[in-house]
Amino acid sequence: MRLLDLLHRWTGGIIGLVLALLGLTGVVLIHKNAWIGVPHAGDPLLHDPGAIATATERLLAQSGKAPQGIIYASDGFGLHQLRFAGGGGAYANQAGAIVTRWISQRQRPELWIFDLHHHLFAGDIGETVIGISALCAIFFIVSGTILWWRTRRTFKPRLLPKRMSRPAILMHHRDLGIITAPLLLLSALTGAMMIFKPVAAIVVAPFSPPAAVARAMAPPKLISGPLAERPDWRRMLAAAQARFPDAEVRILALPRKPGDAITLRMKRAAEWLPNGRTTLWFDAADGRLLAARDALAMPAGAQVYNAAYPLHAAKIGGLAYRLSMTLSGVAMAMLGSFAVWTFWFKRRRKTLPR
């Protein structure tokens, strides 16, 4: 038990600030739609396929350089987002009129906060550090629960420490941690699943063989013609809507290299993932439908994996679940920051004998 306590304290003292940062930025991102502050962001979603096709044609015609794709407006956010290589982009209303542009994600707070939360501004290396931090958080939750059991009789639920002394902060750390442990475990586990494939394989294994999940998630091998000068977006969107009548158009991705198809992601009514995983591939030259994948027909393990992000980012469950995950993020920020402070700066002073 002493060794477990030692590992818990030392690991927390080293990784606590990263977890605090993840908790704080996660809370900000959960409520992004409430503070983004772009005109028309609160517009109601238009479901008319003709209006979506018109906006698509207009956006791709006036965007200047070729974009990588479009993220379409949703129920919670009434703007289309154009994405360009190098981090540039634009927001447009649902009629296809550009509202604001940026040449770097640093110009949009919601984008650089997202990058900080997911990559620590360090790309794949930062993402790996975050994944390791998530695994450490799982260790903290398990070891903290074991260590708390010894002192359970002193349990007192408090949002803040009674005083800013080391013993009071440690008691608050133990008690707040045990209260929020289920939510913290959910946040850490889903975060680790999205970064590390072996973690995801362990979680989905009871539902489907990981190999079957990997096959279901892999894109089909298709050969497409070169991108037409004026693709028939109206025809493609109509074909997609006819194939999945209950689905919303979510993401249009243009070919990145010769031979790639046009990819259209949709969200069926029963899907949790905000951008859906129902996918259609069209020939870039003539707009023919090459392949389609129904997310609801995927193996159970793939659907469990697809639920990781909406659970992690509070994209389901309405206001009640958003508030629950807000509590989880605030708790993670407090636990991580107080752990570092008590470990490195609030050490118990040794008294010398007279």
Rank of each mutant, 00 (worst) to 15 (best):
G12M: 04
I15Y: 08
G16Y: 00
L24I: 12
G26N: 03
V28P: 02
H31E: 11
W35L: 04
G37A: 06
V38I: 15
D43F: 08
D48A: 03
A51C: 12
T56D: 02
R58N: 13
Q68H: 14
S74A: 12
G76D: 12
F77K: 00
L79A: 08
R83F: 13
G86T: 01
G89S: 15
I98N: 04
I98E: 03
I103G: 07
L111D: 04
I113W: 00
H119G: 14
G123L: 07
I130K: 05
I132D: 01
S133W: 00
A134I: 00
A134L: 06
L135T: 07
F139N: 08
F139W: 05
F139R: 01
I141M: 08
S143Y: 14
T145P: 04
I146E: 12
R158E: 15
P161E: 05
R174W: 10
D175M: 03
G177A: 15
I178N: 06
L183M: 09
L185E: 01
K197I: 14
I202N: 15
S208W: 02
P209H: 13
P210H: 08
A212S: 09
A214S: 11
A218D: 14
P220N: 06
P226W: 00
R230E: 03
M236N: 05
A240V: 08
A242F: 05
R243H: 11
F244K: 07
P245F: 15
R250S: 11
A261C: 09
T279V: 10
A284D: 02
G287K: 03
N306Y: 09
A313E: 01
L319S: 06
T326R: 06
S328C: 14
A331M: 01
A331Q: 11
A331F: 00
A333F: 00
T342S: 08
F343I: 08
W344I: 10
R348C: 10
